[in-house]
Amino acid sequence: MPQDARILLVPGSTRAGSTNTAALRTAHTLAVPGVTTTLYEALRELPAFDPDQVDEPPAPVVALRAALADADAVLFCTPEYAGTLPGSFKNLLDWTVGNGDLYGKPVAWVTVAAPGRGAGAEQTLRMVLGYLGADIVEPACVRLPVPRAGVGADGLLADAELRTGLADVLGHLGAHAHRAAAVPASGPPARP
């Protein structure tokens, strides 16, 4: 029997009551066959990206890189801010550029914004992940709108349809990660 696919859940918001974080917290509680999740909760701790520190990064960046290296796949859930990604989340992605942390890694995102919103964040995320050489798993990139009132006092989503949608995403991403693990990777391109 194959080992569970390890999926790192990365919220793109620093807001305490974020529906994005609530969606990934909820995903973390779901029992999905063949999948184990880890919730990344240190976005606030990352220092501003400094290219002079890429080879000797600060401790929070070392921890981020270790979490990414340990993951078979990554699921993002980010809000849109001013038509694009929030600066703190883009900063996280910037720290992954120089060393291939996401190269060839299966990735997906869940957009929980209200209908008609979030397209700018999705477009930017797709562009950045493409630049990083990540393996975007299209069936796992979905929109599951979460009303602010849908987050319970425990910080989780109780709505059965949303929970099922999140479980489906994890299942697609986990299955893709298993298939990708069976194919030898060529490795990231050399850094200039």
Rank of each mutant, 00 (worst) to 15 (best):
F76K: 05
K90L: 10
G133M: 11
C141V: 07
Y131C: 07
D52H: 10
Y40P: 09
A82I: 14
L64F: 03
Q53L: 15
E122R: 08
V107D: 03
C77G: 08
V97N: 08
T78K: 03
M127F: 12
E122V: 10
A71H: 02
D50S: 05
V146E: 04
P86E: 01
G100V: 08
L43R: 00
G116L: 10
G87V: 04
T124Q: 13
L85P: 07
A82M: 14
G116V: 11
A153K: 13
A134M: 10
L64P: 05
V142R: 09
A59Q: 13
C77D: 11
C77Y: 01
D72L: 00
A114F: 15
D50I: 01
G116M: 13
G98C: 10
A66F: 03
N91Y: 00
F89I: 09
L75Y: 01
G150P: 12
A153I: 05
A121L: 13
P47N: 06
P106V: 09
P47D: 08
P115H: 10
L46T: 09
D72E: 03
C141S: 11
R148P: 07
G83K: 11
Q123D: 14
D94H: 00
P115C: 09
G150A: 15
V97T: 14
P145T: 04
W95F: 02
N91R: 02
V146T: 14
D52P: 04
K105L: 14
L85A: 06
V54P: 02
A158W: 09
L102P: 11
A69C: 12
P115R: 09
A134C: 07
F49E: 05
D72H: 03
A108V: 04
V142Y: 04
L85N: 02
R65Q: 15
C77F: 04
V62D: 11
D101W: 00
D55H: 07
R117N: 09
P51H: 06
A153V: 12
T111K: 05
G120I: 12
R143I: 00
A153Q: 13
T78V: 06
P57R: 06
D101C: 05
E45Y: 00
Y81R: 15
R143N: 07
T96W: 07
A69R: 15
P47W: 00
S88F: 00
A153Y: 02
F76R: 07
V62N: 06
V128Q: 00
V137F: 03
V151H: 00
G130A: 09
L102K: 09
L43K: 02
A121S: 14
R143V: 05
T111N: 15
N91S: 08
E56R: 11
V137I: 15
C141M: 08
P60K: 09
D55M: 03
A63M: 13
E45V: 02
G155K: 11
G152F: 05
W95L: 04
V97Y: 08
D154V: 13
R126F: 02
R143S: 13
E80K: 01
L92D: 04
P106E: 05
L85C: 10
D135A: 10
L92G: 01
P58V: 04
V54Y: 00
G130N: 08
R65M: 10
G83Y: 08
G152L: 10
P139K: 02
D135T: 04
Y81M: 14
D55S: 05
A121N: 09
F89R: 02
